[in-house]
Nucleic acid binder design. Sequence first.
DNA 1: CGGGGTCTTGATCTCAATCAACCAATGTGG
DNA 2: CCACATTGGTTGATTGAGATCAAGACCCCG
Lengths: 189, 189
Amino acid sequence: MKVNKSHGLEHGTVSLDRGASLYLAGEKGHAWRVLSGSIRLDQEEPTGTQFAGLAVAGDVVGAETLLFGRYTFSAHALSPCSLRPWMAAPETAGNGIWLQMIAAAERRMADLLALRCGKAAERIRKLLALMGSGGRGVALPRLRDIADITDLTVETVSRTVTSLSADGTLDVQGSYRVRKVREVMKEAL
Amino acid sequence: MKVNKSHGLEHGTVSLDRGASLYLAGEKGHAWRVLSGSIRLDQEEPTGTQFAGLAVAGDVVGAETLLFGRYTFSAHALSPCSLRPWMAAPETAGNGIWLQMIAAAERRMADLLALRCGKAAERIRKLLALMGSGGRGVALPRLRDIADITDLTVETVSRTVTSLSADGTLDVQGSYRVRKVREVMKEAL
DNA sequence: CGGGGTCTTGATCTCAATCAACCAATGTGG
DNA sequence: CCACATTGGTTGATTGAGATCAAGACCCCG
């Protein structure tokens, strides 16, 4: 995997290209807040790598390092993104911070489970909606990633994106490895 | 839904029959720790009810009430279970408690996503393994619940359980609505 | 006794998986 | 600079696992 990780001058901010690695399971490191873009988390199993989570702008990833010192999952950029080191204010922050993170994790769980229900087209729309919430124009992740997250195959994702784009449900701009989805038809669910 | 919720004399412990409701989304209430059995959480949507989470022995459900006062999801018993009110020790417990809950939630997320990958037989075995960890002999949940969790249909679940039981992969005891899975062949994944 | 929820079984259909090429862009080393 | 490998994406033909539709059995309960 080509890794293009560039470090910003201030705050330790980093930028990742689509597909770039943020960290690998088992490595030492700290938590990050996602400023923009989206990150996929994967569980490394002897039998292969398994999609295990998704983080979008505003989310914190790698919080488990505060407990274990090491990352539980591997993290890769689904779309170009920027991140900043995140650390829990030791005592200043009350329980509220943690409760919010727990509540957010539970809601995110429901969202991700929903990405594996329904027909192919519906799953992909739900994923893009999740990634796009809070920003106009989502960079389309690699088909391989969309497939892993929705539990479809690349072939099916390719066909579905093409047809969604053809019938106007999706407005896909750009070509080949640099595509953006401008607008997702907003009928719910 | 028949609700059989019986209250223990001490500690506010409650016992639930398979299928019984612990609480509904939107109600006021407090958090619970699952002592035994397993609980499914559902998101109530205008379009219907959507599986949103699973709690087994040792887990805490309804922690979001500490933040919002009300439950975000509805909770029903998958198998007979007992619970005890749970409250965060205000200051005595440090951040450790919260971090552990967050780490647990993330691992659980990966587990639940895995229940929606692979063939029907594999999904069902993974679910029973998840429910059975830490106790010999799992009560088989209603097929409807298994179907919702694994994103299969009741018909497929029925056929699959029958065939897994026939070929010895699953040792199912009892009949009709009171079946226990004694042993799950433990080849991994 | 009848009714509703749970489970089972069968027949048929459909969507997505699979298998197999192929193209376009990027990168690499001589 | 060219040959070559690699990665990401596309398209077509075929297949299969599970959805869907339908009917009936079983059991509990009022």
